[in-house]
Design a protein around this nucleic acid. Structure first.
Length: 840
RNA sequence: GCUCCCGUGGCGGAACUGGCAUACGCGUACGCUUUAGGAGCGUAUCCCGUAAGGGUUAGAGGUUCAACUCCUCUCGGGAGCACCA
């Protein structure tokens, strides 16, 4: 008769017990060894969780449980990032009002989250759409404004015609909307921005101090995109040499400036209006036509054109003061206004794009660098364009220098002459914060036309604008029926007088509220600060709690947030730090400082199904509910973790799941038979030794989050137990349950209680292993001949490092004799306690 | 195009610092057991060979007594950035 493990019954029983007895709640005030184990909270953009989410949460939870057993006060909170475009779009899709859908999602997500066996502190949840939460999101906006870091500007912004809203640069992937995949258009609109560029330097500087996955750090570094170069100013002249004005070009390669033969302006460049006034009308019209044609083109088409260069000459020239060369001035769409100064100095010999353009316009290429190939001939083919390495020629005082030295020398020279100025530029742009949508926190600002006309306002640089007073926060999002965004780019709230009509905090006259809401990423940029302070009134976070629990001890999440959420959170944190909202001074400043919210971030892998990332749009989503019902939470948790290293993700297949359920049954049987046999069980040396080894291995691997190999080790142990009779002594069984507890919390809790263990197993310390038990009496030493394995010896530990003894034994081995008897042994390599190699 | 990561059995994956390649699991085959269950147990399972032995970590070279591991190139897959001046 087979004994079956009744998973659902047992799991329900313990979930109830944990919840009733608040097993996983932490005393935020009294905890002495705080460990903030945070996972990225989910955004409800579907009916419920899929196993990809569960994978991430389980992997984080195992680590938290392990740390708890190691004696830390582990705080593991959960919540919902329920405000924002993803949730709103989902509500539209299912035909529900976002407010109503949020309630449904909340219920179902929390139901599922309580089934997956994580040690969440259910007394401290956060929903970003809760007015008690977004009251402080709005406060953050107010603070940003007061510190001069929030501003309004008309700008070329990314507009998604499908989502009917603007997007931040980071949300545009290959010219398409990150959410819906539609092609993004450019629109010129008045928007709110956060001045994240003010922190570009610090965001970059701190990167080396972060203990994050390398690829995430690289992604952040690239996104910030620091470039050190120089702005060179060229005088602009007409054919007769009359001075028209100046054009400034940014370059990181001033060393090649002796080879500069043309200058190109972006179609949007402001100088074009100046030059249009001085050139012939036909010419100006032709340029106008070119510009209209390019600006009409979608950004995607502009790239998709195969980089075939087009452009139009202005008939004017820039003067290269180094050479006296008059460089023709063009307008071309391959130059982008947002990059550098929007004007490029063309060096066709040493930049491929410049070369392509020069070919089209029949501009000569001058060689000023000789590359490693030694080619000094004229540059006529793209393969000859030398971009990276070499020494200077035809460049007067730079001749013979390597590129790096020449760059410095040229910069010094240009600055001395007053022709250029060193500058640092960043790829990072200011954070576009406003959204013309409904489902988000209303931006807490008031605009007064009267005050603007009088030049009055809260900030002198932004007349007419006032923040909503702290006592009036939150500005609650009203429940309206016409919540869908229109094509006109007008926010849904802008159609509701009862919402926006208000009084001016400055003059007391009639004024209007801002009707845009803020970006979802603002909601999630500070949630980790709120968790320890849930329930605190009058402040977003309590200073004492924050001092105790932050920065986050270990943050776990997906690498897809490399440049979005993680960058914004770092920025917000740095602001709060600089404004004096933290009180970390007395805590003992660590080497890395307090300037970072997540000193440790672990990027987990993705669950793959049918060769693709699990996602709603691909239709390959697996709901954990059915598997939990069939095999139990513990089996599913362990199956997910066994697929591969936690950092790599894995391939979800049903068949593997069954194997894991079998193994859970096997553990159940070993425990049952051990209980029945009781004191009759005699522990063999080999099992004792193996247990100690397993304790060590599981501890080490869990700490490194190599959960797959940790589980493999426990399987090896149960295989051995099965071979040795299938039972364990009670103390040994207890030790085994303890190391399995983070992985299978319900199963181990049940068996622990059946063994008479005190509630809860999850409050027990991690078992220790006896190093003496790990010492082997004999170890295998490998004998090689010419590096090939020929025999293995079992040698007692003391002799294993004795070369003479081992060499003698090895030489006498029959298998070895066969290979060395007719040969001369030229050399013997001996690695103590490992191998001996005869070279013949 | 640039940057980074990765290629190990039929499959997911092990392999510490250069020292026994293929742990653990899935799948498969055969057998045993059991009132037939999505059950349990056992044996086998990288390739060639009856064996001795030989070959094998995408492919080709190199360094080394010794390479999955280090170096060079090629091919294949993935991720990020992208006319970034």
């Amino acid at each position: 008769m087979t004994i079956k493990y009744p998973a659902s019954e047992i799991e329900a029983k313990w979930q109830k017990a944990w919840s009733e007895r608040k097993t996983y709640s932490v005393d935020i005030e009294k905890a002495t060894k705080p460990f903030y184990n945070l996972m990225m909270f989910p955004y409800p953009s579907a009916e419920g969780l899929h196993v990809g989410n569960m994978y991430a949460f389980t992997g984080t939870d195992i680590y938290g449980r392990f740390k708890r057993m190691q004696g830390f006060d582990v705080f593991e909170p959960i919540g919902l990032d329920g405000f924002g475009i993803h949730s709103e779009n989902y509500a539209f899709k299912v035909g529900k009002h976002p407010v109503e859908q949020a309630k449904r999602s909340e219920k179902n997500f929390y139901r599922q989250l309580s089934l997956i066996g994580c040690m969440y502190d259910w007394t401290r949840t956060i929903e970003t759409y809760d007015p008690q939460y977004y009251r402080w999101t709005q406060w953050l906006f107010v603070e940003m404004f007061r510190h001069g870091l929030a501003y309004r500007a008309k700008a070329e912004v990314n507009w998604c015609p499908s989502c009917k809203t603007v997007l931040a640069d980071e949300q545009v992937i290959e010219g398409k909307c990150e959410r819906c995949g539609n092609i993004v258009e450019k629109r010129s609109l008045e928007q709110w921005f956060f001045r994240i560029t003010a922190y570009a330097g610090k965001l970059l500087e701190n990167i080396p101090s972060l203990k994050w996955s390398e690829k995430v750090l690289i992604a952040q570094k690239n996104w910030i995109g620091k470039k050190e170069g120089i702005n060179i100013t060229y005088p602009v002249v007409d054919e007769k040499g009359t001075h028209i004005g100046e054009v400034s070009c940014f370059t990181t390669r001033p060393d090649t400036n002796y080879g500069a033969t043309f200058v190109v302006l972006a179609p949007e460049h402001p100088f074009i209006s100046t030059l249009a006034r001085v050139i012939k009308k036909e010419k100006a019209d032709a340029i106008g036509q070119y510009i209209t044609a390019t600006t009409k083109m979608s950004p995607e088409d502009r790239i998709a054109q195969g980089r075939k260069k087009t452009g139009i000459a202005t008939g004017l020239y820039c003067l290269n003061q180094l050479t006296g060369y008059t460089m023709p001035l063009y307008v071309s769409d391959f130059v982008v206004m947002g990059v550098g100064t929007g004007a490029v100095v063309g060096v066709p010999g040493h930049d491929l794009r410049d070369f392509e353009f020069a070919q089209v316009m029949k501009i000569p290429a001058v060689r000023v660098v000789v590359g490693p190939d030694g080619d000094t001939s004229e540059i006529t083919k793209p393969e000859q364009v030398q971009e990276d390495a070499g020494t200077m020629i035809h460049s007067e005082f730079l001749d013979g220098m390597v590129i790096a030295d020449a760059i410095t020398a040229m910069m010094n020279y240009l600055e001395k002459k007053g022709w250029g100025k060193r500058v640092v530029t960043y790829h990072l742009r200011d954070w576009l914060i406003s959204r013309q949508r409904y489902w988000g926190p209303p931006i807490p600002m008031i605009y007064c036309q009267t005050c603007e006309q009088k030049g009055k306002g809260e900030r002198s640089d932004m007349p007419g604008w006032y923040t909503v007073a702290d006592k009036d926060l939150p500005v609650e999002l009203p429940v309206i029926d016409d919540y869908k965004p229109g094509d006109d780019g007008i926010a849904p709230l802008a159609k509701h007088k009862e919402f926006y009509e208000t009084l001016c905090p400055g003059c007391g006259g009639k004024a209007v509220r801002e009707t845009d809401v803020s970006d979802t990423f603002l909601d999630s940029s500070w949630y980790f600060l709120r968790y320890p302070s849930v329930g605190v009134n009058g402040a977003p976070f309590d200073k004492t709690f924050t001092k105790k629990w932050l920065p986050v001890t270990m943050y776990t999440g997906g690498a897809e947030h490399s440049v979005l959420h993680l960058m914004y959170s770092r920025f917000i944190w740095m602001c709060l730090y600089d404004w004096g909202y933290f009180d970390f001074s007395a805590k003992g400043r660590p080497a890395l400082g307090w300037e970072e919210p997540f000193p440790n971030f672990f990027a987990h892998g993705l669950v793959i199904k049918d060769g693709a990332k699990m996602s709603k749009s691909k239709g390959n989503v697996v709901n954990p509910d059915e598997y939990i019902k069939l095999y139990g939470t513990d089996a599913l948790r362990m199956y997910l973790m066994f697929m591969g290293p936690f950092s790599e993700g894995g391939d979800f297949r049903d068949s593997g799941m069954e194997g894991m359920a079998r193994w859970v049954g096997r553990i159940w049987r070993i425990a049952t038979s051990s209980l029945e046999a009781g004191t009759d069980v005699v522990a063999s040396d080999i099992v004792i030794k193996s247990l100690h080894k397993t304790i060590r291995k599981v501890g080490e691997d869990t700490d490194k989050r190599h959960y797959n190999t940790a589980i493999a080790a426990t399987m090896e142990f149960t295989n051995l137990v099965a071979d040795e009779g299938g039972s364990l002594t009670i103390p040994m069984l207890k030790a085994f349950l303890l190391i399995l507890a983070p992985y299978a919390p319900h199963l181990t809790e049940e068996l622990w209680s059946r063994l008479g263990g005190k509630f809860s197993i999850h409050h027990q310390p991690w078992p220790t292993y006896d190093p003496a038990k790990l010492v082997e009496e004999t170890i295998p030493v490998v004998i090689q001949v010419n590096g090939k394995l020929r025999d293995t010896l079992q040698i007692d530990v003391e002799s294993a490092s004795n070369q003479e003894k081992i060499e003698a034994t090895a030489r006498s081995s029959e298998k070895v004799q066969k290979f060395i008897k007719d040969q001369t042994v030229r050399k013997v390599i001996f690695v103590p306690a490992r191998l001996i190699n005869f070279v013949i």
